[in-house]
């Protein structure tokens, strides 16, 4: 099954405006409520991937959690204009802990 999807970006204005130049669908938001609505609308309108900046994402955990177990849309965190907050990496670690029981990734480093 192959379908065409769009790609959306949600986040604060400074960070997401750059993606406009690439031809992605961009929604600049300021408050968590706006962000929630933007993500939900985008999911309904058939966006296959929604990039959300970390700064915005930490306010709308619930909404993101809701889409976590669906195949589409994939909500992916990207660093905002202030740089990476490490939420994305922490999410990966959560996944590992959930699946394996121990954190195997950070053991490799230290």
């Amino acid at each position: 099954m192959i379908c065409m999807y769009k790609i959306g970006v949600v986040g604060e204005r400074d960070a997401v405006i750059a993606f406009l130049a690439l031809g992605l669908q961009v929604r600049a938001v300021e408050t968590p409520e706006e962000a929630m609505r933007a993500v939900d609308t985008m999911a309904r309108e058939g966006n296959g991937v929604i990039f959300v900046t970390e700064t915005t994402a930490k306010e709308i955990e619930e909404t993101i959690e809701r889409y976590k177990n669906q195949m589409l849309p994939a909500i992916i965190l990207i660093p905002g204009s202030q740089g990476s907050l490490g939420i994305g990496l922490a999410k990966i670690k959560d996944n590992v802990e959930k699946a394996v029981g121990v954190d195997i990734l950070s053991k490799k480093e230290g």
Partner: peptide, 27 residues
């Protein structure tokens, strides 16, 4: 930058890894 020269869309197909349906994306 308000009018981009290109539009990017996504082709999503399914792949089955041990009965988990994972998306395969191709833009």
């Amino acid at each position: 930058i308000i009018m981009p020269t290109e539009k990017i869309s996504l082709n999503v197909s399914k792949k089955n890894i041990m009965s988990v349906n994972v998306p395969v994306m191709e833009f």
